[in-house]
Design a protein around this nucleic acid. Structure first.
Lengths: 228, 228
DNA sequence: GAAATTTATAATGAATTTGTGAATGAGGGC
DNA sequence: GCCCTCATTCACAAATTCATTATAAATTTC
């Protein structure tokens, strides 16, 4: 992880920057800071960052403008920081190219989790691997799944679940762990939700060999297993 | 399970403590309680906890102070409990070294999930190891057991028992100790239960060399022994 | 060698866990 | 606004495992 992942934090409150820096550095990230939008744009010009954390309310040049400017030249992931009550701005932020937002006050765990999720997704592109098994092909790029040569339509959650299990084949996950990994650290719903999605998946994978891949490990959870 | 993870819960409302205790103990954690900040600090001094759950509003010494004091000496994960509306305090809490916060009223699942997440991240982690012996392979990640090249299906308890014994090979355990370690500290059933599971295991490990590994130590208990 | 203690075997009902069908409700597209 | 999809939850059925009991076998002790 910490192999030189550079993050730029833009906020006019020094205290906030320090807080964010504290937790990001604990995770091994390299952190730079900018106190206003103007400065931020200059720094982005000079240095190649892997991710930008951007407060909306900035002096000189506001967050939206920074966002728009950055997007003209690059696809760096941007996480916006917004104060509660600025909910409306959220939409605007997304339209202008932000990839995620976090509402202040936030928990460091939440921010770190989102940063990591973002980097996993957009960061130093580990070639998104096409997974292939007998009678089953999973392409994360196009989010396409092919069973016995025929494309099968999966819902987003179904796809994410299948892809996660397949990517970590032979490894058992508890329902709790799956909720955390596939649904997200901030989902606290019922464990049985996992069962339902597994069922849907098995059904959609049909009577073919593919339907045998998702295995119930009784008393523990599920795993993806190729078998023999 | 059973490996003694100790959590200190600090709150001036006994009712709140009981609630938290209920859910944490159900998960196998050992829970201590303190009703005020002063008491909390004394307990932390004497005992080594793996995690602290800390209410902000405390008599004698408040949550912030406790947090600051703890941080002077240790990196124990701290989860803060705050009442809704104390949003502002959240930031302050983080600056003082809290690792996460939960807003009251909270769902027990949420609290437990956060506790576990915290322990996973900061707690000590032992890598799960594949154990291999002549004619027997035990993989805790996939929870697979292979005897003489053929996979054998074990029930959860059988697997846990076998893995525990094998991981601690050459060491004798009384039935009592096994119940505590494999079943959990809160299991108060018959000692004979262990016998039953040992028998099942031996049967499933078949006539091969593997079936000789679980050894009865007469008058004491069982051990896993590779022999010659 | 017999009695006493400890362990092995086998069977069964209870308890836990998972599968299944269906209902609800949120959110997006038209 | 309306319909459709998807995610989630619930209730119930099915499957599996678990703990216990009773009885037989083994081992020790005297």
């Amino acid at each position: 992880m910490g192999s030189e992942t550079k993050i730029l934090v833009v906020d006019d409150e020094k205290k906030m920057i320090d807080l964010v820096r504290l937790y990001l550095e604990k995770e091994g990230f390299k952190v730079d800071e900018a106190l206003n939008g103007q400065q931020a744009l200059e720094m982005i010009e000079k240095t190649e960052y892997n991710l930008i954390i951007l407060d909306l309310m900035l002096p000189v040049v506001d967050g939206w403008t920074v966002c728009k400017e950055v997007r003209k030249k690059s696809d760096i992931p941007i996480i916006m920081l917004t104060a509660r009550g600025e909910e409306f701005d959220k939409i605007l932020g997304f339209e202008l190219g932000a990839d995620d937002y976090v509402v202040k006050p936030f928990s460091p765990r939440e921010l770190v989790a989102r940063v990591k999720a973002m980097l996993r997704r957009y960061g130093p592109k580990e070639p998104s691997q096409i997974l292939e098994f007998e009678g089953l092909l999973i392409d994360p790029e196009s989010r396409k799944v092919v069973v016995d040569g025929k494309e099968v339509a999966l819902t987003p959650k179904e796809f994410d679940l299948l892809y996660f299990l397949a990517k970590n084949k032979e490894k058992v996950f508890t329902r709790e762990k799956l909720l955390e990994e596939v649904w997200g650290y901030d989902f606290f719903g019922s464990l049985r939700t996992v069962d339902t999605h597994v069922r849907q998946l098995r059904e959609k994978l049909g009577g073919s060999k593919a339907s045998t891949y998702i295995v119930t490990v009784w008393g523990v959870g599920y795993k993806f297993e190729v078998g023999k």
